[in-house]
Structures are given as structure tokens and as C-alpha cells.
Amino acid sequence: MLAERVVEWTEKWKQQGLQQGLQQGLQEGLEKGLQQGIAQGEITLLRRQLTRRFGPLPEWVEQRIQQAPPEQLETWAERLLDAESLPAVFET
């Protein structure tokens, strides 16, 4: 009888552990997907604003935008408001 209880408890704990692991993995996946979606939205918006202000974007701009961290995208978006030229947006 005790042995049966131990087997039952072990199965219950395994199931609980599996459920917790799945929930944690799902949550981490959702957070990562959300961050990627926000970053892509920032890239899209910056690209549209730059194109509207300065016309078609050269390849070097596209490359810099795609490789930039979110903080840099925000800096460029702010510079866009006052910059007189496309290179001025990306000056360091």
C-alpha cells in the first residue's frame, strides 16, 4: 500500500513538474516574441519616417537599421526630427 502511494505521488510530482516547465517555456517564448515584434515595429516606423523625409533609403541605411539595438533606433528617430540630411541622422 505504501509503495503504491509512493508511485502515485511520484507520478503526480512528475506531472506538476512537466506542467510548470511547459508554462515557463511558453511564457519565455511569448516574451521573446513580443520583444521581437516591438523591435520590428520600431524598425518599420523609422524606415517609413526616413523615407518620407529623405526619399528612398540607400543600402547602408537599411543595414544600419536592421543591425541596431532598440536604444539606437530611438536615438535616430529623435534625430530625424531636426536633421537636415540623412547622414546627419546617423552621425555619432
Rank of each mutant, 00 (worst) to 15 (best):
L80F: 06
W76S: 00
K12Y: 11
M1E: 14
L22E: 14
L81N: 02
L46E: 12
Q67C: 06
E84H: 00
V61R: 05
E74V: 08
E91G: 05
L34A: 13
Q36P: 08
T51Q: 13
Q24D: 00
L34Q: 13
P87M: 04
R53T: 15
L46Y: 10
W60L: 06
L22T: 06
I38N: 10
L50E: 12
P58Q: 08
Q23C: 04
T10L: 13
K12H: 03
E4I: 04
L30K: 14
E28P: 03
I65Q: 02
E91K: 05
E28H: 08
Q20E: 15
W76K: 00
G25A: 15
Q63A: 12
L50T: 08
Q15F: 01
L34N: 05
L80M: 04
A83R: 05
I38W: 05
F54K: 02
L86F: 02
W13D: 10
E28M: 15
Q19E: 15
Q63H: 07
P56S: 06
E31D: 11
Q23D: 01
V61C: 07
L2K: 08
Q36M: 09
G55N: 03
F90I: 07
L50D: 12
Q67K: 04
A77R: 08
V6P: 00
G17I: 03
G55R: 08
G55H: 06
Q35Y: 05
R79L: 03
P58S: 12
Q40K: 15
Q15M: 06
L46I: 11
L81I: 08
G17S: 09
Q27E: 15
E8D: 02
L22I: 12
L45W: 08
L22V: 11
A68D: 14
Q27V: 12
E28S: 14
E11V: 01
A68P: 13
V61S: 09
A77H: 11
P69C: 11
Q36L: 12
L34T: 13
E11F: 00
E62L: 14
K32V: 11
P58A: 11
E31L: 15
G55L: 12
V6S: 02
E31P: 02
V6Q: 07
W9M: 13
P69V: 14
L30N: 01
Q63Y: 00
Q24R: 02
T10H: 11
Q20K: 07
D82R: 13
E62M: 10
G37W: 04
L18I: 12
L22K: 03
T92P: 06
E71F: 12
E31T: 13
P70S: 05
W9I: 14
R48I: 02
E8K: 07
Q66V: 14
R53E: 07
K32S: 08
E78T: 07
V89G: 03
E62C: 09
Q40E: 15
L2G: 06
Q20A: 14
Q15G: 03
L26T: 05
Q20G: 00
L50P: 09
K12M: 12
V89A: 04
R64Y: 03
Q36I: 09
E71G: 10
G29Y: 07
T10N: 11
L57C: 08
L30P: 01
